[in-house]
Design a protein around this nucleic acid. Structure first.
Lengths: 332, 332
DNA sequence: CTGAAAGCGCTTACAG
DNA sequence: CTGAAAGCGCTTACAG
């Protein structure tokens, strides 16, 4: 990189007329440097446009000043769901001022064990792992290898890894109660993937919020197509439903499409509640009533948690649950 | 990282009964190692769960095995526009198999010069820079510092930096011709930001594709709100328009909202063409006729270009233009 | 407050 | 085909 003769610490020391130790102290803001020496060093650094070699630093300090964001999901899903964009934004915001860099890792690196090798190989100081599925051994392995890890989203397995999640359960309860209290009587749900806590918790919450038996259930992944399909399934099995809780806005978008195709009016014939309050919720017609979760905050809090861990803080809560809230729009 | 006693090359050498040099040769797949030695080394590596220390490697090879994706844009825009998600996906896909990692850098690091220092400080082997605005000195500086760089999107300044872009001009020509040939006579455009090539080229293309004087223009940034505002402006200044080319789907979404508020039917009263063919185009009602650009391919091609440069390939085209195409839906 | 020296864990000529 | 040795550019006790 940068020509062949990037200036070294040595060069700065010579130019400033001090030792390498002193230059190092100035660079790292260590105490015990005379004003005079510091001045000379600062000047030399500016003059030579000196930038410390990170590799040399990492080698000796055994830190990398970077953390990984591991998205345990296939690329096509990652990038079609606004959820990940917001997580990324939150993580990035959470790192601001930490002087650390973000390395992005995705599922495609997992095939040959490259991802685990990388993470355990001392290339990053810690990791935020998002979108974990049931039975994934990754977090346990990372922790075992001594890597500080914080998860976005509750893990379904009983692993001792701290996590930050939205209160999906309570959010779903609220959604169900909203449908009930607005007079809907035949309420169904399109549940999300049951191999993820978000899917499980929202289904449980919906059931807990219902008064009648809550057994009108169709399943979907977090995608428009899945939502469209699941909605068709519901209409087929329960032609008289008048309310639906979709476990994600992206699912609700698909459901809306199917409802339109079947000539069902929303909310007149069927009320629809989503989950997320993503950008999607306001681009649909009608705009979606939905359960708001602050996904960016989720990413930010998770990152803070990790950074605090790296800073050696001890009294960290083992996990954090962020509040959710109903946002009423035109679909109910 | 990883406990305190990660095994080193030295340990592997001892365990295998060979020298460090030989172990290094095996690890790096260099020729000139006997089958016997290689076997012993491989076994020792597996036994000790040895993972090479990247910092030490970087220090001596002067390579980092990572490249940067620099998004020269404020976070709030980056993460609300599907464009960046697709770019990221493309870049990531383009890196597959390169054994390199992706470091994400955003505008927030620019304030104190940290971003430039990082990039020029030998922390990455090269950079993909996206969303450049007019007059940004960054690419020139990076190139000057000897860092291989490829831009996503044509730079407006006359810098000698390779780039990959969609053929925005031709796409916009097609959009204008489509409106004209479908019988619209009072056609307007909502132009994108004129400090970016995408905005400039699409405006020029629209004008080139028109037959009558093309002067019904409102300006917007790439946002829903901007599009809504610009559409209101157009309706106010040119109440008789019957066709609009919006320079991006996200702008068209805002325009649709305003049109609905004003009781204008699409496409009956006013035909609307977007640009991008993003997910937004199919979640609106009516679905958008739009100009498709393959943003993921844009990211992928840019990354290939960079990797080829890093691999020392000489006959690289200085820039690449990817095709665009009209996708007809219900808004025209 | 300052400097000489050791050492972080690799790769790479060089000699055999 | 193999190994001894130098060196990459830093930080960090240690001695003064």
């Amino acid at each position: 990189m940068r020509g062949s003769q990037a200036p070294t610490l040595e060069a700065v020391a010579r130019a400033a007329g001090v030792s390498r130790s002193t230059v190092s102290r100035v660079i790292n803001n260590l105490p015990g440097v005379s004003k005079r020496a510091k001045l000379a060093v600062d000047r030399a650094i500016a003059e030579l446009r000196y930038v410390p070699n990170q590799a040399a630093r990492n080698l000796v300090t055994r830190r990398t000043n970077s953390i990984a964001l591991v998205v345990s999901e296939r690329g096509d899903r990652v990038f079609s769901d606004p959820f990940f964009a917001k997580i990324l934004r939150g993580v990035y915001a959470g790192m601001a001022g930490s002087r650390r860099q973000l390395v992005l890792l995705m599922d495609q690196d997992r095939e040959d064990g490259a991802l685990e090798a990388y993470l355990c190989g001392g290339h990053v100081d810690g990791a935020v792992v998002v979108s974990l599925h049931r039975g994934d051994p990754l977090p346990a392995r990372l922790v075992e290898a001594g890597l500080p890890v914080v998860l976005v989203g509750r893990p379904l397995a009983d692993v001792k890894v701290p996590y930050v999640d939205s209160d999906n359960f309570t959010g779903a309860v609220t959604a169900a109660r909203h449908l009930v209290s607005s007079g809907r009587r035949k309420i169904a749900t399109i549940a999300g993937p049951q191999d993820m806590a978000a899917g499980v918790d929202r289904l449980n919450g919906w059931q807990a919020g219902m008064v009648e038996p809550a057994d009108r259930i169709a399943h979907s992944d977090f995608s428009v197509e899945g939502g469209a399909r699941a909605m068709a399934e519901l209409l087929d099995k329960y032609p008289d439903i008048d309310g639906v809780f979709a476990a994600a806005d992206i699912i609700a978008v698909g459901a809306l499409r199917t409802l339109a195709e079947h000539g069902k009016r929303v909310p007149d014939d069927i009320a629809l509640v989503g989950f997320d309050d993503s950008v999607l919720a306001t681009t649909t017609a009608p705009q979606l009533t939905t359960v708001r979760q602050d996904v960016e905050e989720l990413g930010r809090t998770t990152t803070w948690h990790l950074l605090a861990q790296l800073a050696g803080e001890q009294v960290l809560p083992p996990s954090v649950l962020l509040p959710t809230a109903l946002v009423e729009r035109s679909s109910t």
